[in-house]
Design a protein around this nucleic acid. Structure first.
Lengths: 367, 367
DNA sequence: AAGCCCTATTCAAACGTTTTAAATCGTGGC
DNA sequence: GCCACGATTTAAAACGTTTGAATAGGGCTT
């Protein structure tokens, strides 16, 4: 790869205008295609071929700029060196974060990936799984996808949750994530905390909420249902767009202010918000600011994910970072391992969250 | 597609455990694979096949859940129904915006796409172009990629600039974009305007700057070199990351404050900034805010792109929206047309920018 | 009855690999 | 002079499809 740029312009087509194939190379050397193939692939049988012949083959291949035909090779060898990646929407921050990591090991390992957006629709997801299988992908990486039945091929689910036959789940350690966030608030003196719960169609929502209930209980935090509304999400059929997420966060922020309103007081009956994700946190912050509240003096806000803009918001957002890129890297890596087929594979791979303390959280003020 | 979910679980493998192939179907019907293929593909020759036979074929195919093997079909037919997409980095906002549109028509047209990130490195780009060509893609879509020589396959360049043989460029109308932005500032009374120029490795930088010089001249705006520094960008070899972009915007914001400092005054010698893009605009805004300036009272800021977080920033960012998704849609559409090979194709396709006026711009104050 | 055109279907090659079993060819042992 | 043998190399099948040429049967014309 390093020497590519300096290499002279490749021929790739023979003088006749025909593609350079194994046969072309073989004819040039007065050998058979079989021999050339064996040498070029360094197949075990190549041991019995004298060094001198090998060198002739390599030289000829280089001279003609022979490039094996992938389709033919895959057809014969039943390996396509491709995997399918299914995301809700490529432009959505969570998915694109994960995607950026997927590539790392896959391409090194000689794999490329085909992408499709399922837009949260189960029927589209099913359809694409079929189409990609028809295209002979060797495995799948699913990001934020709900599946009931395991695909027929080796599959890695990023932030999946179910234990399914043949599926490896790459998940963030929710217990640690939630504990970090809530402990941070507790240390700052917060006791009355509001929450935004994830929508039912979000793969992480249920697990995370269960964890929150458990950890809150351990820390002695009471959860008041009217201050823990569940986001609706974009539902099946809608395109997942961050704009909608912000809007939803905004309106739920207003809702929280209404539900937590204290007669005669300018401040609501909670001092902190733990949102389901950064997008909704930012929307809610905006609602708080618009209502004349100060952040973090009046209300502290904690998000989840650490999307790109979280750090550059004003005020910058304290959040639990999910290492999206690393999760993508793991997914690619594990799929590669599974495809090379050595033995067993894990059901779950857990990655570590990290609390990023920024400007949106501060100590409780008792004025 | 609509009836897929309700369809009973497909067999896809025959009782023997062998894949269902054309031959399987043919044998079941006592016909030859050729006939089955002709019928299933509705090839012209199928006219001479009686309706009754056709129906038998369709029925058998459905019953066995026959799915043609893509690799075999592509090998034979020399069409892979795949295209290659090259972006700087999938998680980068510009690229993912475009990507989300690319998919629309491609998948409808039976195409999938393979993605790779060139990370701004020409040698990686060249390498991937080769690898994808080896994989028999039928064409390319390049996003924010610098190429000197045209690829061997039909290519659409999104925000390319050069006129290259075989390449269709999808570009935003820079003249309109710049005119809208600068007119807006002029209408607000701004005369002393600072700029951030795009880095040399950015495909849009040169074109946009030339346009700015021209339009500024028309509008009677003087460009002062010390207030129009050029961003350095991530240079070849670095991963394109928004974080770096923000940081760079921040430090260039500080630089502008230094260059534009007026002895004894608390405000700099410019009342507005037209940044190269939203990321640098947001970084610079942060620098201004940190320096105690108010936005837009002391300095108005205009960005470019309208990335997702522009609207939700505080203050929200006035910017020139590039219809990224639409540009992706166009790219996919045009490539599809070119692949289906009807006649000639355009060199350039221009899309319309749109000024989004938000809270970061306001009238000049003379206090 | 030969020739001919239709209709319905099939043959066989081709796409470019990989792989297994087998062919070829000295060579040395007996 | 025969045979086994190691060392090289190859023929041929297989992967699953598409397609242009070919076939078989039958009815129709002259």
């Amino acid at each position: 790869m390093a020497d590519l740029p300096s290499r002279p312009k490749p021929a790739r087509r023979r003088r006749g205008g025909k593609r350079v194939t194994l046969k072309t190379v073989a004819e040039m050397l007065n050998l058979s295609p079989a021999t050339v193939s064996i040498v070029l692939n360094r197949s075990p049988v190549a041991d019995s071929i004298p060094q001198e012949t090998k060198e002739r083959v390599f030289a000829a291949a280089r001279q003609l700029d022979y490039r094996p035909n992938y389709l033919a090779r895959s057809l014969r060898g039943k390996r396509s060196f491709s995997v399918g990646v299914l995301v809700p929407e490529v432009s959505e921050g969570y998915a694109s974060g994960v995607m950026s990591g997927i590539e790392d090991h896959l391409i090194e390992g000689g794999y490329f990936y085909l992408i499709a957006s399922h837009r949260g629709k189960p029927e589209l997801l099913a359809e694409y799984l079929n189409q990609l299988e028809d295209r002979s992908v060797e495995g799948f990486i699913l990001v934020a996808a709900q599946i009931e039945t395991p695909p027929r091929l080796p599959t890695i689910a990023v932030s999946g949750h179910r234990r399914l036959e043949g599926v490896t789940n790459v998940v963030v350690d929710h217990d640690k994530a939630v504990t970090q966030a809530l402990s941070h608030l507790v240390e700052l003196g917060h006791e009355r905390i509001a929450f935004l719960r994830g929508a039912t169609d979000n793969v992480d929502a249920e697990e995370r909420w269960r964890t929150i209930e458990r950890v809150a209980d351990q820390l002695g935090i009471a959860i008041r249902p009217e201050l823990a509304p569940q986001l609706v999400g974009s539902r099946y059929g809608a395109v997942f767009s961050p704009e909608e997420g912000y809007q939803e966060g905004y309106s739920y922020g207003q809702k929280l202010l209404a539900n937590g309103a204290v007669r005669g007081a300018s401040k609501p009956d909670f001092t902190a918000l733990f949102a389901f994700n950064d997008v909704s946190a930012i929307g809610a912050m905006r609602a708080f600011l618009d209502a004349g509240l100060r952040i973090p003096e009046d209300v502290s806000v904690v998000g989840f994910d650490d999307i790109q803009s979280a750090a550059f918001h004003n005020p910058s957002l304290t959040t639990v970072r999910q290492p999206l890129r690393e999760m993508g890297v793991s997914a690619g890596e594990i799929l590669l391992q599974r495809l090379s087929g050595r033995g067993s594979y894990p059901d779950f791979v857990t990655v570590e969250p990290q609390l990023r303390v920024r400007a949106s959280t501060g100590p409780v003020r008792s004025d």
